[in-house]
Amino acid sequence: MVPASPLFGDDDEPSQAKRLASTVMPLDLHDDAPAEQPRFSEAAPQVDTAVAALDLPDAPAAPKVLSSHASILDLPDLPEARLNREGPPASTSQITAPSEIFVVEEHPSIAPAMKRGQEKFPEIMKMSGFLIRNSLNDLVPLSFDSLSSHGSNTLTRAAGLVDRIAAATRAVAEVRASEQIQDIVARADSTKHTVTLLGFIEKSMKPFDPVAANVHLTAIKEALRIKLRVVDELRQEMIRIKDSLVVEVATMAILSDMTDHADIGALVVRKASLFNVSLQEVQMALTQVTMVEKSAQDWVMRCDEVKTVTLPALGFRASL
């Protein structure tokens, strides 16, 4: 006995198959049926198909594709610029000229003061006229506060530099380069015999050592070179301070000529005298440091001369 099929139930298979076939709609395969449209048209460009697929309302037209003969540098025609032949617009007067931005309002007495400076200090005004103008702008209009505070930093630096130069001069002198070089040369010269018996015995017990003398000369030279670097820095800074004081002295002299000698005029004279004294001290210190620098340079050269000329000439060439 054939078991019942779970798909068709208890009926026989042929009758169930007929009912199933009657429910299925047959496909129409006749020639007059419309052919299936291709998904993409071969003639239509892809951009049109994409736009149609989006189905947007009022979609803009697709951009035109450049032909192979079109140049990539072809630009659309630009509208011609309209030239204003009637003159500048009315709003031009509201534009500020660039030079007007940097104009500094000066006191009315600055111009005659600069003219007086040209007459009294032509060389200084030629080199440092703008610095004198700045100093005048800081001082004018004259008052006790502006006059007492003006140039205080320069005066303090000048006094400090004078002290530092004095210390550098003492440091160079403490090397005792001249005495030590002369002592080395004297001990190396065997022709110079001591007159006293004690001196002769001392020279016999302590013969001259050229190697030790060479090391000693090198140490003297290096010590002097270190001191010379410090002295050179001080000299350069002193020159800058001197130039600043020259400007301040000229500024005070101009103001002294243009002010009366009552009240504020007396203070101007005292301030001018202070700058003059400081300038004199700086000039003296600058002269001193220049002489010290020259002496130290001579001693450095002397060390080289003793090492390379004097000692070999005295018979110690093989020992050096």
Rank of each mutant, 00 (worst) to 15 (best):
A111S: 14
V104I: 13
L286Q: 07
V231A: 12
A44M: 13
L66W: 08
L139K: 00
A318T: 10
K18E: 09
V103E: 12
A53W: 13
D263Q: 04
I124D: 01
G151Y: 03
F40N: 10
L139R: 00
L142N: 04
E237A: 09
I72E: 14
V2H: 08
V231D: 01
A61K: 11
D28C: 02
D163K: 11
S135T: 06
Q37L: 14
L228N: 05
L54I: 10
K242P: 00
V51N: 07
D257G: 12
V103M: 08
F208D: 01
V282R: 00
D55P: 06
T196D: 09
V195R: 05
S109N: 08
V104W: 05
S295Q: 14
S143R: 06
A159R: 07
P112C: 07
T259W: 05
A171E: 06
E237S: 14
L314K: 04
L245R: 00
R116V: 04
P79M: 06
M205Y: 03
F102G: 06
T169F: 01
E305S: 09
D163R: 07
L136F: 03
E179F: 04
D10T: 10
K64G: 06
L198Q: 12
I132L: 15
D260A: 14
E106S: 13
S41F: 04
D263H: 03
A35K: 11
L75K: 14
D74L: 06
P108R: 09
S128Q: 13
H107M: 05
V2K: 08
P26A: 15
D163Q: 14
L245E: 02
K227P: 00
A81V: 13
A250L: 01
D58P: 01
F316G: 02
G315F: 04
M127H: 07
M284L: 13
S68G: 12
V292I: 15
S152Q: 15
I184K: 02
A159D: 11
S68H: 10
M258N: 06
K271W: 02
T194Q: 14
I181A: 01
L155W: 00
S91G: 10
L142H: 06
L29R: 10
F102L: 08
S67N: 08
A44K: 15
Q46F: 14
E222A: 14
M125E: 02
P57D: 11
A266L: 11
P63R: 03
V231Q: 04
W299I: 02
E123V: 09
L234S: 02
E36G: 09
T191V: 03
P108V: 07
T251C: 05
L279F: 12
A186L: 15
Q94G: 06
M205K: 15
A318N: 14
T23F: 07
A35P: 08
L20W: 08
A97K: 09
I220P: 01
V231N: 03
K126L: 12
I72Q: 11
P312H: 02
A313T: 04
R170K: 15
D257L: 11
D189W: 01
V24P: 00
P112H: 07
D55S: 15
M238A: 12
A62D: 11
H30K: 10
A266G: 11
E174G: 06
H107N: 14
S204G: 13
Q118T: 15
T96C: 09
Q288G: 03
R82S: 13
T169W: 00
A253W: 01
V269N: 05
M114H: 02
